[in-house]
């Protein structure tokens, strides 16, 4: 059961990271839009330690605007960056963040 649909605005949580993860620091705290569903998979935080009780989550391709990610971005306004994020890292974007 997926929490987010294509087109949903989502924010990457500002959570503490330690030792190993795949959620780029530059995406955390930023809001983008879901553009693709990716298959469910073991999340990297559990797969990296081969946990027998490893959590399986749906993944999403999230599209960010480059100018939202990088302070002082000098490229075009329409430039985007897409990356894959596990569901547990995402929350619905708050009003006004869209």
């Amino acid at each position: 059961m997926r929490r987010f649909e294509i087109g949903d605005h989502v924010t990457v949580r500002e959570a503490t990271t330690l030792f190993h993860h795949r959620t780029q620091a530059y995406t955390r705290g930023h809001t983008g839009v879901v553009v693709e569903h990716r298959p469910e998979w073991l999340i990297p935080e559990d797969e990296a330690w081969q946990r027998e009780d490893g959590r399986v989550e749906p993944f999403y391709v999230v599209r960010f605007r480059q100018r939202d990610l990088w302070p002082g971005y000098t490229g075009l306004d329409r430039d985007t960056l897409e990356t894959e994020v596990a569901e547990g890292w995402l929350v619905p974007a708050e009003e006004g963040m869209q």
């Binding site: 990271t17 330690l18 190993h20 993860h21 780029q24 620091a25 990088w70």
Partner: peptide, 11 residues
Amino acid sequence: LRHVLHDVGGQ
């Protein structure tokens, strides 16, 4: 210090 090494984007 605890920034995970392979997360090089934007560093």
